[in-house]
C-alpha cells in the first residue's frame, strides 16, 4: 500500500540524533504545501520513538511508518 504514496520530498535523517532530526523534519515540512508528503528516514530507538509524536502534536498526520532493511525507519508525514 505504501507504493501508492509518492512523497513530495525525502529527507534522510539516519545517523542524526534528537532533536536535530526533528529540526530537519520541520525545515522540510516548511518547504511543502499543505497536503504534500514528506518521507523522513529515522534511526531506531529514540528517533522513531520521539519524532512521530512531535510532528503529530504540531498538527501533521503520520500516514505510514515502516521498518527498513537496515533496521531504520521510514516515516511518511502529510503536512497540515
Amino acid at each position: 500500500m505504501s507504493d501508492a504514496i509518492k512523497p513530495d520530498a525525502v529527507k534522510d535523517c539516519r545517523k542524526v540524533g534528537c532533536p536535530m532530526n526533528l529540526v530537519y523534519a520541520k525545515v522540510e515540512l516548511a518547504k511543502l504545501q499543505s497536503g504534500q508528503v514528506l518521507e523522513i528516514l529515522l534511526d531506531d530507538g529514540a528517533p522513531i520513538g520521539n519524532v512521530p509524536g512531535s510532528v503529530t502534536r504540531e498538527g501533521h498526520r503520520i500516514i505510514e511508518q515502516k521498518r527498513l532493511a537496515d533496521g531504520a525507519w521510514s516515516l511518511l508525514i502529510e503536512k497540515k
Binding site: P19, M20, L22, V23, K26, V27, A30, K31
Partner: peptide, 25 residues
C-alpha cells in the same frame, strides 16, 4: 524562504523546535 545553513539550524534549533516559533518564526 531563507536557506538556513546547517550551523544556523543548530544554533537556532531550540527556537525551530518551538511550535509557536518554528522555521517561519
Amino acid at each position: 524562504m531563507l536557506d538556513f545553513t546547517s550551523e544556523q539550524l543548530e544554533r537556532y534549533s531550540r527556537h525551530i523546535l518551538l511550535q509557536d516559533v518554528g522555521v517561519e518564526g
